[in-house]
Write a protein that binds this DNA or RNA. Structure first.
Length: 458
RNA sequence: GUGGUUGUAGCUCAGCUGGUUAGAGCGCCUGAUUGUGGUUCAGGAGGUCGUCGGUUCGAAACCGAUCUUCCACCCCA
């Protein structure tokens, strides 16, 4: 080992059990996506920079991985920009492509490009990797997987209702009970900003408000003051800071507060409609909660916004998020197409399930049964059974070499193979198999049909 | 991007204010055990101390740079 190999910061290898568990989660998500009528698409790992840049705010632009041009990429660069180390001028000249930052913007690009082939409303799901040049932390990686479901071409609030039900269905199926689906509406935020005369500072205002449960009301007020929002305006916000109670009563308070804001009332109305639908249909294990401080940074959202918090007691950022964007395709030239979607953060969901020990035992790599190799003649006898087992869907293999029994048994043990079959001289004579249960340590000689019965239920 | 933190055997970590040949547990390999793993016992292999440079008679230890880990900001799944 001359030099230890390594992988880039914020990336990971996935070993067999981890891949198996990731697939377990993805299969559940995919099943529900399809139950709800979403159809799969895939888009390229990298896009033209112009497609991605400017869609996620300044912060987002900084976190986009740029792909260096091929060939003599320095030839065309403006010499002055280069010598003065002006990165923002040089970057577009040496990089015309960038790695996907999320799945929503590429999807908007896809919709515009394929608009003539799409029957609207179009429901698509997509489970692919995205990349962010962020500094890694717990649950934060530079390469991670998002599982998105979006609908474009429908203004109906029924879509929001469906997406909330979809979150609930998936988390229930994953045994991840007690997740909180936080909901808010950008129109309400806009209404509040309007009410306090800070419409022009909507972003600053929401970013500060978003930190309420983290840094407290006093610090939030201070941050708003620093951003130039007046003290008298901030005073009007007191009912927001002290908002409490259930969904409906919170809505009532906000309704009174926003009585003079048309856009604010529109937001209230939307949330009321959604809340009534959810009340009617119920949620299995998740809780829907109105969180007026929920802002979400992605600035293309215009209506409802969602964020999913892991069950209480688990330290983890949001495990899902989404919202409605009335005009995302507009920047690519397709007007008046509203979209709404949600995202599942596979990697964070994995970490939460792992922490809570909720992966079923049945999720494991490797075969159900291993045949011990006793030699050439015995191998022929064993392989006959191996092929028969595989035909009936039982994962089986014969240890490839006639190694010591000790080594073969250890192999089964290490790989958590639940059953081992001994088929040697004795068994060939009787035409039977000896089936050993590795967990119990018990074994029994029986015929092949009986063995098959036992193994089918593994 | 800002501030802090971490790196010693495959893994988890000891290693004193700088001083011979760098340790432990677990894992791994071999044997006790040629039809029985997870227990036990005996033996064994495995380390340019993240990397590069500096200070010193002497560096795993001190200094600098760099990479990496984790954490807090920022932002987010």
């Amino acid at each position: 080992m001359a030099q230890k190999p390594s992988i880039p910061k914020g990336t990971r290898d996935f070993s067999p059990v981890e891949v198996q568990r990731r697939q377990y989660i993805m299969n559940i998500i995919r099943t529900h996506f399809e139950l709800y009528g979403f159809m799969p698409i895939e888009t390229p790992s990298f896009e033209n920079s112009s497609t991605l840049m400017g869609k996620y705010g300044d912060e987002g632009d900084r976190l986009i991985f740029k792909v260096l041009n091929n060939g003599s990429y320095l030839k065309k660069v403006d010499a002055d920009a280069l010598t003065s180390k002006n990165e923002s001028a040089v970057t577009p000249q040496i990089s015309e492509r960038a790695l996907r930052y999320d799945l929503t913007v590429p999807f908007a690009r896809y919709v515009v490009q394929h608009q003539n082939d799409i029957a609207f409303p179009f429901k698509r799901y997509q489970m692919q990797n995205v990349w962010r040049a962020d500094r890694p932390q717990k649950g934060r990686f530079r390469e991670f997987t998002q599982c998105d479901a979006d609908v474009v071409g429908s203004d109906s609030l029924l879509q929001e209702v469906e997406l909330i039900k979809l979150y609930d269905a998936v988390f229930t199926d994953l045994k991840l009970t007690g997740c909180t689906i936080k909901i808010n509406n950008r129109k309400i935020l806009a209404g509040i900003a309007e009410m306090i005369g800070a419409q022009d500072q909507l972003i600053d205002f929401t970013v500060a408000l978003d930190k309420l449960d983290k840094i407290g009301a006093d610090k939030v007020k201070q941050e708003m003051l620093d951003k130039g929002i007046t003290a008298s305006a901030i005073e009007l916000l007191d009912p927001v800071f002290s908002l409490d109670g259930d969904f409906t009563s919170k809505l009532e308070v906000m309704k009174t507060l926003l009585k003079d804001s048309a856009i604010g009332l529109k937001g209230i109305e939307e949330l009321t409609t959604i809340s009534n639908w959810i009340k009617k249909n119920g949620l299995k294990t998740a809780v829907l909660d109105l969180d007026i401080t929920l802002a979400r940074g992605l600035n293309y959202y215009t209506g409802c916004i969602f964020e999913v918090a892991a069950p209480d007691g688990v330290q983890m950022g949001s495990i899902g998020g989404g919202g409605r964007y009335d005009d995302l395709t507009g920047i690519f030239g397709l007007k008046d197409v509203s979209g709404v979607g949600i995202s599942f953060g596979l990697d964070r969901i994995y970490l939460v399930i792992e922490e809570l020990n909720l992966f079923p035992d049945s999720v494991r790599a490797g075969v159900d049964v291993l045949f011990i190799n006793f030699g050439e003649v015995e191998s022929e006898y064993a392989m006959d059974a191996v092929f028969r087992f595989r035909e009936s869907g039982i994962k089986a293999e014969l240890y490839p070499d006639n190694s010591k029994m000790n080594k073969q048994m250890k192999y089964a043990d290490k790989n958590a193979i639940p059953y081992v079959i001994l088929a040697g001289e004795n068994e060939i004579k009787s035409g039977q198999l000896t089936l050993k249960n590795m967990k119990e340590g018990t074994q029994k000689e029986m015929n092949i049909a009986a063995v098959q019965e036992v193994l089918k239920s593994v």
